[in-house]
Nucleic acid binder design. Structure first.
Length: 277
DNA sequence: CCTATCACCTGCAGGC
DNA sequence: TGCCTGCAGGTGATAG
């Protein structure tokens, strides 16, 4: 479920809720979630470690323990819950439990079991961790420019939709925001990347950041009303202009929004506002 | 290198 | 009601 803004919101919320707790023990109930190291070692290494920082790259969360970092990805349906150790939990869908010395627990919930976690020895640079081998610049990283986006796009023949979903070019955009970015940029998602001008790339990056930052601000406001009962999944109702609006009128021109399949994913388009190049 | 397809899992909606 | 199919806000492995 979560894309960059949801991941950012979850991180901010966890930081606000948890602060900087020390792990007493880790309980892994579904082992394939842990990619590396072996589950025993994962549990051993985390004992007595204290969370010192929260950050992310794209949709990957990074919990910094000083000597090690835990990188987590919620994939489609992962959620984190902060609860007291005596609180009951969903036995079927809670797969990893981090118990802290203050009696609270961070519980990872994931119905589809797609999420993954990896623990690495701390490196000087986050991009050195193996899980980031195919992950490019974070979409909100200001050192990433529209020139660089153009460089990455201009000789590729994949569609714009595919390119936006390709985390190795720019990380953080998923299926929902990809559609919204195409709509705001007045570009048809099936446009081949090599047809995009430098100006198009400028627009794409501008709208990417505008939309992602807007969603983060929106998500940030939900933190206030957050309670551990709800779980921290960063989900909130956004004003989406095309995504999930099949058969509804375009908010700009009134044309009926169409749904097609592109890059194997449901894709929503206003064919009047979004012309193919 | 590039692109397409499948696999990983579970739950839910819609058709019959 | 029950069964089947397709679909879901993601990514990595594999095959051409």
């Amino acid at each position: 479920m979560p894309e960059l803004p949801e991941v950012e919101t979850v991180l901010q919320t966890l930081k606000y809720q948890l602060q900087y707790p020390t792990i007493e023990s880790v309980n892994v109930r579904y082992e394939p979630i842990i990619q590396t190291p072996k589950v025993n070692e994962f549990q051993q290494l985390l004992q007595q470690k204290t969370i010192q920082d929260y950050r992310r790259i794209g949709k990957y969360m990074i919990f910094d323990f000083g000597s090690h970092v835990l990188v987590a990805h919620m994939r489609m349906e992962g959620k984190f819950y902060v609860q007291r150790k005596e609180d009951p939990y969903d036995q079927k869908h809670v797969h990893v439990i981090f118990r802290f010395t203050d009696g609270r627990e961070l519980r990872y919930h994931d119905t589809r079991k797609f999420g993954r976690m990896a623990l690495y020895e701390k490196q000087a640079e986050d991009h050195l961790y193996p899980c980031f081998k195919n992950v490019g610049y974070d979409a909100l990283d200001e050192t990433f420019t529209s020139q660089m986006l153009y460089q990455a796009y201009h000789q590729r023949k994949i569609t714009l939709k595919q390119a936006l979903l390709d985390q190795s070019i720019m990380a953080g955009v998923g299926n929902i925001y990809a559609d919204e970015i195409c709509f705001s940029s007045h570009l048809h998602p099936a446009t081949r990347c090599y047809k995009l001008s430098k100006k198009d790339c400028e627009n794409i990056l501008f709208h990417t950041r505008r939309i992602l930052k807007g969603a983060i601000r929106f998500g940030g406001t939900t933190i206030r009303s957050y309670t551990s009962q709800l779980g921290v999944d960063g989900r909130f109702q956004l004003q989406l202009k095309v995504h999930q609006r099949e058969q509804e009128p375009c908010l700009v021109c009134g044309t009926t929004i169409k749904k097609v399949k592109l890059a194997g994913r449901g894709t929503y388009i206003c064919t009047k506002c979004q012309k193919r190049k």
